[in-house]
Design a protein around this nucleic acid. Structure first.
Length: 327
DNA sequence: TCTAAGATAAACACAC
DNA sequence: TGTGTGTTTATCTTAG
């Protein structure tokens, strides 16, 4: 989807951020009427996202996954801090908890933000980004694992695994169909995945459901973690363009502040239902408008500007920030 | 250089 | 009958 279209993401937590109440650069900190704190982070020249999802696709992802809470915002550079499996929240140190992924970076393609750039330097041409269709560094096993883990019931038919992969990794939107064969090949061959017969009474569609064998879950997590760490630490994110993805989140829209109408009631309702509200995590949202990025925090979240700056620097900074946020 | 893991392609059977 | 799914085999590439 062309990022030049300006529509509000379905799950935007704080539309008032765009409501026109925020000056872009005159003040370092603003509080919107919904209680969210929005901080103009940096005057950055963004290239448009070549891979933004269509609203329909984004909504699909948003509504079909436990990650959905984050999908419209998680893309912001791994500040997606929701423990994937709520049952594991109390077990943060356990390898079987995926929360580390969200503290370090989300399951979606890495999406580093550029360093803060003074206005005077904003005219410096940004390096051209690699095509958003760069092949993900994750193995098919990891992709399948992520897809299944992201499903509400931790089981998916092949078709939905395809869909999850396509929705989250733009590369496969345009890739030839052979990767689907590889997915099926992996499902069949890998001991990590187990086939479950569908309930005949509720069976709609072909095929079986696939789940992750619990005994292989730690191994899959380890592989995923190694892949993630490798690509986080070796990509020289500070000075190089992101290897995998554009600067603008896949599920994020670029929203002009002037174009959004804000429904106070909806937002309040949304905030009340926020499953993160007492989870020990905070949810961060980045928005971009013109040359500025905005980090939107829940109203009771206190982060000083230095921390906010850290948040946007790079993956290493994210780790630090993640540690801070864990406290 | 060897080995294991992963990716890819292809063929085939089966179910819907 | 066509299509999707599941299995199996073979080959190639790459990392350790």
């Amino acid at each position: 989807m062309d990022s030049s279209s300006h529509t509000l993401p379905p799950s935007s937590p704080c539309p008032t951020t765009f409501g026109g109440s925020l000056p872009f650069s005159s003040s370092p900190q603003h509080t919107c009427s919904s209680g969210h704190l929005s901080l103009p982070l940096s005057p950055i020249s963004f290239p448009p996202s070549p891979t933004s999802l269509s609203p329909a696709t984004a909504e699909s992802v948003h509504s079909s996954s436990p990650l959905s809470h984050c999908t419209a915002s998680q893309c912001l550079e791994g500040q997606n801090i929701q423990c994937l499996n709520t049952a594991d929240i109390s077990d943060q140190d356990d390898l079987t908890c995926l929360s580390w992924l969200h503290q370090r970076g989300n399951l979606l393609p890495l999406q580093p933000l550029p360093r803060m750039t003074p206005l005077s330097q904003s005219s410096t041409p940004t390096q051209p980004l690699p095509p958003a269709s760069s092949k993900p560094p994750y193995s098919f096993s990891s992709l399948i694992f992520m897809a299944i883990e992201a499903s509400p019931h931790k089981r998916l038919p092949v078709k939905d695994i395809y869909e999850w992969i396509v929705n989250n990794f733009p590369y496969y939107r345009t890739a030839s169909g052979g990767w689907r064969n590889s997915v099926r090949h992996n499902l069949s061959l890998s001991k990590s995945f187990r086939r479950i017969q569908r309930d005949k009474s509720q069976s709609v569609g072909k095929g079986s459901l696939w789940c992750v064998c619990p005994e292989y879950r730690p191994a899959l997590l380890e592989v995923l973690s190694k892949t993630h760490n490798y690509h986080s630490t070796n990509s020289n994110l500070i000075n190089k363009p992101a290897p995998l993805c554009p600067l603008t989140p896949d599920h994020e829209e670029l929203v002009p502040m002037e174009s959004i109408e804000y429904q106070q009631d909806e937002v309040s309702e949304e905030l009340e239902k926020d499953p993160l509200s007492d989870s020990g995590y905070i949810e961060l949202h980045y928005y971009q408008s013109n040359q500025y990025q905005y980090l939107v925090l829940p109203g009771d979240t206190e982060l000083d500007l230095e921390t906010v700056e850290i948040l946007q620097l790079d993956v290493e900074a994210q780790e630090a920030a993640g540690s801070l946020l864990d406290l």
